[in-house]
Amino acid sequence: MNVPDDLRYTESHEWVRVEGENARVGITDHAQAELTDVVYVELPKVGAQVAARGATAVVESVKAASDIYAPIKGTIVEVNKALEENPALINTDPFGDGWIFILKMNSPADVEQLKDAAAYRAAIG
């Protein structure tokens, strides 16, 4: 299972890529493999304030709808519109074209609270 070393992770299977003041967020390879067949993604609104661990987006597979949580507190500055046409990008490229939203972090130091790759690898066994 792919767990890139340069990302941070949550227990709820989101990944975070720090890009200056912003954090790009998606779901992990492990999560997409568990879900399979992503058929719909409900994106947050740009400008929305989100709390850490607050439900922010919804990813739907054939079988179930799953909440996606904001890993850290911030404001949504961009969402991945490509998922509206092609939600399966989450399956095919979870760490790349399958990203879900970018948020501007209230406090970039919050990232330190998240798991590093080794800790996430250990968590998913």
Partner: peptide, 17 residues
């Protein structure tokens, strides 16, 4: 389908249990 019981309202799970 995998809900044989009757739930009062739709629920969303977290990504993985």
């Amino acid at each position: 389908m995998h809900r044989n019981g009757h739930r009062a309202r739709p629920q969303r799970g977290s990504l993985t249990p």
